[in-house]
Structures are given as C-alpha cells and as structure tokens.
C-alpha cells in the first residue's frame, strides 16, 4: 500500500448524500478476478451524462472527492475503493461514511476525512475554482484562503495510512495469541467447531 501524508490538488465538489457503492461501481463491473481497471466503471450512471463533474477537464485526475452524508453506503464491495483509487482519488471528505466503506478505503490507501456539513459546504465552494490541501500528520484540511479545518481519525488507521502498512503482516505478529485463543476455545466451548 502506498503511504499517504500530504495530498493537495483539485477536489471534485460532488456533495451528494447517501451515495451507495452500487453508484460508485455498478455490479456488472464486479465480474472480475483482479483489482485493476475499475476506474472505467466508476460512477458509470452519472458519467453517462456528457457534462458530468468527473469528466470535466479541471477535475480529471483530481486527488480529492468531496461528498455528502453516509458516503459509500450499501454493498460491502471493496471494488468501490479500488475504483476511486484507479480514478486517482487519495482523499474523500464527507460528513459521514458507511462503516464498511471507510474500512475498505483505508486498506487501499484512501483517507476518509470526516468534517461537519458547514466545512463541507465551504470546501465545495472553494473546490469550484481552487485546490484543497490535506495533511494527515497534522489532521488538517486547508485552502489558500483562511480556511483551516481539523479532523479526527482513529490512531491505528492513521498509522496504517502514514506507513502504508499491510495489516495481515501486522496480525501475524500475534500468531501466538491467536493460537492460545483457539486452544482455550476448544477447551471451554468445544461445540463451537462445526459438527459435520
């Protein structure tokens, strides 16, 4: 996973509420056995409109997406995070996310920034003409004007993003603890193993 610290550039002022992962990447794009090339299907129904936001020259390859409440709700498909990553998006800024989407985003080096609606409204305005700056180390979103918004992030997620950590390697360090848990479970509740 590519580490992430500072991201600056144009931010797509998308802003819609309850955007589900079916909208981010429709199911027919899920018939694949790889993670690559999902960007072509990203926001397909919206991009059918020739004047859509995502394909405007100023937002091509923009690293930041500004969205509304409950972004990434619905299906658990990680393909949504792969599709955003393939579009070049490294940061999403929204008032809230579905739990599954925000987890998937972090595992793919995409930072889900949570800011209140008021801050979102201001950033949407700035994004029309100017870049947005995101600093994960200092947990801030700023603009070239006087705007400075601080955001909270779970320390574990922050570390994973800053260091580009592979969670499986990290968990493998707990191999002995997992083994001890399994042994205790077999002793205390042996019926937990599938009977057949």
């Amino acid at each position: 996973m590519t580490p992430l610290d500072k991201v600056e550039g144009r931010a797509i002022p998308f802003g819609l509420k309850n955007v589900d992962t079916d909208v981010i990447i429709p199911a027919h794009w899920l018939k694949t056995t790889t993670r690559e090339g999902m960007g072509r299907g990203a926001f397909e129904s919206l991009r059918a409109d020739p004047d859509n936001l995502f394909d405007r020259p100023e937002y091509k390859g923009a690293p930041i997406l500004i969205a509304g409440d409950n972004f990434g709700c619905g299906s658990s498909r990680e393909h949504a995070a792969w599709a955003l990553g393939d579009l070049g998006i490294r940061v999403v800024i929204a008032p809230s996310y579905s739990d599954i989407f925000s987890g998937n985003a972090v595992k793919n080096g995409i930072l889900p920034v949570v800011l209140p609606q008021q801050a979102i409204d201001r950033l949407m305005e700035v994004a029309e003409t100017d870049p947005v700056f995101v600093d994960l180390e200092h947990q801030t979103v700023t603009t070239q004007y006087q705007d400075r918004f601080s955001f909270e992030i779970d320390p574990f997620r922050k570390m994973c993003l800053l260091e580009g950590l592979d969670e499986i390697s990290l968990t493998e360090k707990s191999d002995a603890a997992i083994g001890a848990y399994e042994a205790k479970l077999d002793a205390d509740r042996p019926w937990m193993r599938p009977a057949a």
Binding site: R35, S76, R77, E78, H79, A81, I100, G103, N104, K107, N108, E167, I168, T171, E172, S174, I178
Partner: peptide
C-alpha cells in the same frame, strides 16, 4: 471487504 476476506482467511 475483500482485503478483510484475505485477512480472515490468513489469520
């Protein structure tokens, strides 16, 4: 998500 599927399979 799929990364977690891999995580559960492995650990």
């Amino acid at each position: 998500g799929t990364s977690e599927v891999e995580h559960v399979l492995a650990t």
